[in-house]
């Protein structure tokens, strides 16, 4: 067993302990990049004028109207500033995305395993995957009312299609010898599904989840623009109506911020769930 000791020294396990303690120069580049963003924005304001309010006005609008705003009530919005609308949109995007993701993952992995499921889902996915899903939004508003349900169903439909396609592709990319190996060890179809196909697809499923969640914010917002009782899209369209561009961009900025945070959390979750992946494989 001499080769074991020899290879152990060359193993990447040792790298774990060598995390840098002080902030790396990368963080300075990122901070510089954020500063650059605001500088360019300010310059844009100086050139364009009132059509592009400067960052401080937008941030001021986002802060002053965040929790409570008599101004918003005056515009006909429900009491409570940006906050309840942000909660509503976030709830919609996350719930819709989660429901759709579960359905899409199951149908996608199912179609990879069974030709019958594949044949059943294929025409449905072909239709839903090609048509810009938001043409369905007015239908949902009629069928399910101007409530959160319409938004959630729209987001769920979209996420289901995205996850279905990603899951199908993930299993295709998984080498068939994994499943064969499992079957020679006595694993049945269910065990191969849940111990081999599912964990093996996790990295690609996270890619699909990221794409679905990224689009979910926009889909939720446009359903709100078309007419629902609450949500950040409602704030955007209302402030747009009175040409209050700073408050409108404030809403947009807050929505983008939530999207960035959700994306970052998703990436953290991916890192935790794919610790087994070789470095640089994604």
């Amino acid at each position: 067993m001499t080769d074991i000791d020899a290879t152990r020294d060359a193993m990447p396990v040792a790298d774990k302990a060598t995390a840098p303690a002080r902030p790396s120069p990368e963080i300075w580049w990122t901070l510089g990049g954020i500063a650059l963003f605001f500088i360019v924005w300010t310059l844009g304001h100086l050139v364009i004028g009132r059509y592009l309010p400067p960052p401080w006005q937008v941030i001021a609008a986002a802060v002053t109207h965040f929790f409570d705003s008599r101004y918003f009530v005056g515009l006909g919005l429900p009491p409570g500033g940006y906050w309840p609308h942000l909660v509503s949109t976030t709830y919609t995007a996350l719930l819709g995305c989660a429901v759709g993701a579960v359905i899409g993952t199951l149908t996608g992995l199912g179609s990879a395993h069974s030709n019958v499921i594949h044949q059943i889902t294929r025409p449905i996915v072909a239709i839903l995957g090609t048509v810009p899903i938001l043409v369905a939004a007015p239908f949902f508003l009629i069928w399910f009312g101007v409530s959160e349900n319409s938004k959630i169903i729209l987001v769920a439909f979209y996420s289901a299609v995205v996850l279905h396609l990603y899951a199908l592709r993930a299993v295709e990319h998984l080498h068939p010898s994994f499943a064969e190996s499992a079957s020679t060890l006595g694993a049945g179809p269910w065990m191969i599904f849940h111990r081999v196909s599912l964990p093996g697809s996790v990295p690609e499923l996270f890619g699909g989840l990221r794409a679905a969640l990224g689009a979910a914010w926009g889909l939720a917002a446009i359903t709100e623009l078309l007419g629902t009782d609450r949500g950040i899209g409602r704030v955007i369209i209302t402030t747009w109506g009175v040409q209050d561009i700073a408050s409108m961009m404030g809403g947009l900025l807050l929505l983008a911020l939530i999207a960035v945070i959700a994306d970052a959390l998703l990436m953290l979750a991916r890192r935790a769930a794919t610790r087994w992946m070789p470095e640089g494989a994604l």
């Binding site: 580049w29 990122t30 510089g32 990049g33 954020i34 650059l36 963003f37 360019v40 938001l134 990224g214 689009a215 914010w217 926009g218 889909l219 917002a221 446009i222 623009l225 950040i232 899209g233 955007i236 369209i237 747009w240 409108m248 947009l252 929505l255 983008a256 999207a259 960035v260 994306d263």
Partner: peptide, 19 residues
């Protein structure tokens, strides 16, 4: 240097920017 701006551009929900 432009990476943060690009990330924000990608994450800012497109359909919400129509107005």
């Amino acid at each position: 240097l432009v990476a943060p701006s690009l990330h924000l551009a990608r994450m800012c929900p497109l359909l919400a920017m129509i107005p």
